[in-house]
Structures are given as structure tokens and as C-alpha cells.
């Protein structure tokens, strides 16, 4: 299933609708790389609330998305990692190094607004 990417002011919000296959996750990466350019977005929020598990591939791809978007001049925040998912990631040794995270969409937007006014 394709991940809808919505434009909200200077930000893009990609909200995962279901568990994604590896190929779909890579499609999301490619779509975001293109959309930040088209929309001249300064911030991207990837909402993973719906994910019931984050394995090494998903974590690695989300890190890659954040790093790639940084090179495109956009900041990325991953929001909505659920408590059980976070606990499991810690056990697995997955850290999402260098990636900004926030509790939920609201906090993600607040992070960007702070950054722009401050």
C-alpha cells in the first residue's frame, strides 16, 4: 500500500497506513526524496504509529530516509513509535542513530515550529 504524503505548510507528513513490505519502504524513501524538492519542504514527519514492530530493515531504512532528506535540505522527525515497539527495538539493539523522534504528530509539528521561530 502506498504511503500518503500530505503537504502542510512548509512540512510534509507521511503517515504509514499498515505494515510495509521492504519494497514499499524503499518506495516511500524515493517518494519523499522527490517530494521535498517539489514542495520545497523544510521538514518531514514520518508517522509510524501504526507499525506493530520495527525490525532492523525498517530501522535502517528510516535512518537512511532521514540522512538522505538532510542532504536534500530537509529535517526529518519520526513520530509514533509505540512503547512495545520501542522496548523491542532496544532489545534488538536498534538505535535510529542521528534521527530525531517525537512522541506523536503533535509533538513532531511542535518540534519544527520551535526550530523555525527559535
Amino acid at each position: 500500500m502506498q504511503v500518503p504524503i500530505l503537504k502542510q505548510g512548509p512540512y510534509l507528513i507521511a503517515t504509514l497506513q499498515s505494515a510495509l513490505s521492504d519494497a514499499e519502504l524503499l518506495d516511500l524513501r524515493d517518494a519523499l526524496a522527490e517530494r521535498v524538492g517539489k514542495s520545497r519542504s523544510r521538514g518531514v514527519i514520518v508517522d509510524v504509529t501504526v507499525l506493530d514492530v520495527m525490525d532492523s530493515f525498517a530501522a535502517r531504512t528510516l535512518s537512511a530516509i532521514a540522512n538522505m532528506l538532510r542532504l536534500r535540505g530537509s529535517d526529518t522527525v519520526i513520530v509514533g513509535i509505540q512503547p512495545e515497539v520501542a522496548m523491542t527495538m532496544v532489545e534488538l539493539g536498534l538505535k535510529l542513530d542521528g534521527v530525531t523522534t517525537a512522541l506523536d504528530l503533535e509533538e513532531g509539528l511542535a518540534y519544527f515550529k520551535r526550530g523555525i521561530s527559535g
Binding site: S56, F57, T88
Partner: peptide
Amino acid sequence: LGTEVTMIAAAISELSR
């Protein structure tokens, strides 16, 4: 329960991968 189910799902993911 909760987290244990998630851990099992993650193990399945890693092994399948």
C-alpha cells in the same frame, strides 16, 4: 502479552529476513 508478542513478531521478522 503486549511487549512479548511484539518481541516474537520482531524475531520472526529477523529470522525471515
